[in-house]
Design a protein around this nucleic acid. Sequence first.
DNA 1: TTGTACGCGTTATCAA
DNA 2: TTGATAACGCGTACAA
Lengths: 317, 317
Amino acid sequence: MPTIKDVAKKAGVSISTASYALNNQSNVHPETKRKILAIAKELNYYPNASARNLKTKRTGNVGVFVYGFGGPVFSDVLEGIRQALQANDLNIIVSSGKASSTLLKERQIDGAIVFDGQLSDDTLLHYASFGHPLFVLDRILEGPNIYPSLIDNEGLVYRFIREMLEKGYRDFGYLSGPTIAFNNNHRYDGFKQALSEVGLPHTYIQGDFTIQSGYQAGIQLVHSKQIPRFIFCANDESAIGLIQALKENQIAIPDDVAVAGFDNIVLGSYVSPKLSTIGIDHIEWGKQVANALVDLLNDKTPDLQIPIGKIILRDST
Amino acid sequence: MPTIKDVAKKAGVSISTASYALNNQSNVHPETKRKILAIAKELNYYPNASARNLKTKRTGNVGVFVYGFGGPVFSDVLEGIRQALQANDLNIIVSSGKASSTLLKERQIDGAIVFDGQLSDDTLLHYASFGHPLFVLDRILEGPNIYPSLIDNEGLVYRFIREMLEKGYRDFGYLSGPTIAFNNNHRYDGFKQALSEVGLPHTYIQGDFTIQSGYQAGIQLVHSKQIPRFIFCANDESAIGLIQALKENQIAIPDDVAVAGFDNIVLGSYVSPKLSTIGIDHIEWGKQVANALVDLLNDKTPDLQIPIGKIILRDST
DNA sequence: TTGTACGCGTTATCAA
DNA sequence: TTGATAACGCGTACAA
C-alpha cells in the first residue's frame, strides 16, 4: 500500500512538498506538482484516512443512525441526506445498533443525524458536548450543538381529522404505532385533540407500524364486530395491512369503513382503494437537515425549516 | 476531549500502563487496573479511533455498499449483516454513491460487502489487492480476495416456469428489471431456457423493478390488447404494480392473467390476490455473507454457501 | 508489574 | 519554492 513517502521518493521531492501538491496548495511549482500528481496516480496512491484524521481532527464523514434499515420513509430520508452530503464532499455513513454508538464515541464522524429512538440520550449529549453538530429527527433532545428536526405530526393529523369531521364522520378509531415511538404519540395527540374538541370518543387499537400488525388489527376488529366507521392509522403500512384484512372479510372501503394513513409512501397509490394519507417530502426533509449540518460544519448559521406536510385525499376515505 | 494521556496522568501511571489496562492486558496489577478503568469512566474516555487504526492497521469497520437505500430486499440483507457483525464486535457502515469509493480507497474499513452494480471493478480490485476481503453480492467479479455470492436466479426461475408449464400455461410474458441488472438478466435467462426447451415464444416487457414501472407496463399491455396468459415479473414490486393496473382494468388475476414475481417480500402476502413468488431468506443470506467475512478477517477459511431459494405458490397463478 | 521510547502516515510550522 | 521536523493519540517492544 503506497504512502505519501513512496510518492515523494519516486518524485524526488520531500514529503512535505508531496503533501502540498496532493492537497492542491498554491506554493508549489507547477511542473513539480504535475509530476507528483502523475506519480501518485501511477502508484494508485490515496491518503490514509486514519493518519489524516488524526492530524486534522476532521474525518469528512457524517453518521446517520437508524433503528433499522427497512421502511420507505427511512430510505427516502437517507437518499436526501446522501445527495446533500455528496454535493458537499462529505461521506455518508449509515449505521445501526451498537455500531452507532461506537462510531460516535470514538470520533469517527464530524457530525451526526440520528433517526433512532434507541440511541441513549447520554451518548448523544456526550458526543455533542465536544462541539459536534447533532441532528435528531422526530425526537426531542435539548443540549448544546443539538438540533431537533420535527415534522408537525400533531398539527397535520389534527387538520386531517377536522376535515373528516366536516365530511360527516363521527365514529373514529386510531390504529397506533409502537407506544414508545415519538411520532406515533404526537400523531395520536393530534387525533385526540380534534375529537375532544367536538366531544367525541374513539376506539384505540394497538399496532406497531408494520403491514402485519395492521392486518392483525383488522382481523381482530372483524371478530369483535365493533368496527369504527373511520380508522386513522399511525402510518401507511399498517393502513395497507388493515385494508387488506377488512377487504378479505367483505368490508367495503370506504363505504363500510374509511381508512387513512400517514407518510404518503409510493405503495399507497398502488393499492385498492388508493390510500388517503398525509404526506411529507422525505427526500427534501433529508436534504434540508443535511444541508443545515453542512452549514454548521462550515461555521455558518444553519437555516432549518419545518418540513411542510400536506393532506392527500384519495379513495379510501 | 480526554485522551489516554489524561487518564494516565490522573491515575498517576504511565501512558503504557493505562493502555495495557484499557486493553485488558493481563500484565497489570488488579488494583492499578481498577483505578485506571474507574478514572477512564469518570472522564468519559474513549480511544480515538483514528489513532488506534493508524497504529494497528485495523478499523473494526466493515463497509456495506449499496446502490440505493430503498427496497425490501436490501433492508433485509442489511439487517442480517448487521446482526452477524455486531455479534463479532465489528461495526457496520452502510454507504452509497461517491462515499463508497472514498471509504474503500482511504482504507476506512477492514472488509467490504458490495451490493452495488455501479461501483467500478477497478476500485474493487484495487481495494482487494491489498489483502482486504471483499464480497460481491449478485455480481460477478474475479480476483484475489474477492468472493462473489450469487443466488441461483437462473435455476429458480427455470424451475418455476417448468412448474407453470406443467400446470398448462402456454402463453408467457416476461416483465424485466433494468437491463444492466445482473440478477434481472439471470432471471431472464432461466425464463428463456425453460420456454425454449419446449419451443415456446414469449413476450418481453421492459420494466425497472419499481412498482411504478410495473403499473405502467400493465397499462400499456391493456392498451395493446395483447396480454400474455402468464406474466413472470423480475421482482415482486413490479409484479404488484402490474397486478394493480390489470385489476383496475377489470382483468381478473389469475383467471384472465396469472402473475408471479421474485423475492418473496412481506407485502406479497398482503395484496389481493396473494402473490406467487420465489423466495430467498434475505436476512439469512446477509448473515452468511457477513460471517464468512468475519472468518476471513480472523484468518479462518470461510464457509460460504449458496442461499437456498424456494418456490412459493399463492393465489396469483 | 510498570515505564521509556519509537513509529504508524499525515499535516503544518518554520527555516532555508 | 522546497525541505526538515514536530505533533496528532495510540499500541507495543524493550528496559527497568
